[in-house]
């Protein structure tokens, strides 16, 4: 049960039930679709880009508690950030859920993950890391204006 509680923390459950930025921003000018064919999770991430800056972000779709909470908290974390900052966060987040120590990822520097650190529990559930990173892969595709839907497989 302790590993489970670490995975399904209150904040994660709360975000999965009431996701933030669960909408298509009116001024969105870039978007991408991402899906996990194994479990049917499917999200669209919308961006309102102002040059290199993510002025607004929203997402829609359906998925498990982990993927939905991850998408919700991601939108909060990257809003107002530059492309490069968002990319950097993605790398740190990916290392976190894969259980790689932070020291390996960013030459020993502290991460900027902040609240996203609560996803550390995912690393004990290797079958669920793709749930946590789906929204991030989709964000990356939206930033790069990828036409084709990204897939975890």
């Amino acid at each position: 049960m302790s590993d489970l509680r670490e995975l399904y923390q209150e904040i994660i459950l709360e975000h999965s039930k009431a996701p933030r930025n669960f909408r298509q921003p009116e001024a969105a000018n870039q978007s991408a679709e991402g899906y996990n064919p194994l479990c049917g999770d499917h999200f669209t991430v919308y961006l309102e880009m102002d040059g290199d800056c993510i002025r607004d972000i929203g997402f829609q779709g359906s998925g498990c508690a982990i993927s939905k909470a991850s998408a919700s908290m991601m939108t909060q974390s990257v809003k107002g950030k530059t492309k490069a900052e968002a990319e950097r966060l993605f790398h740190q987040f990916r290392d976190l859920v894969a259980g790689h120590s932070h020291a390996n990822s960013d030459s020993g520097e502290a991460t900027q993950l902040g609240k996203l650190e609560i996803f550390a529990g995912v690393s004990k559930f290797p079958t669920r890391t793709k749930c946590a990173t789906l929204a991030w892969h989709t964000l990356q595709a939206a930033i790069e204006r990828k036409q084709k839907a990204v897939s975890t497989e």
């Binding site: 489970l4 995975l7 399904y8 479990c39 999770d41 498990c64 508690a65 982990i66 669920r128």
Partner: peptide
Amino acid sequence: HPHDVGTI
């Protein structure tokens, strides 16, 4: 989601 059911 069924995935969460399966993990638990």
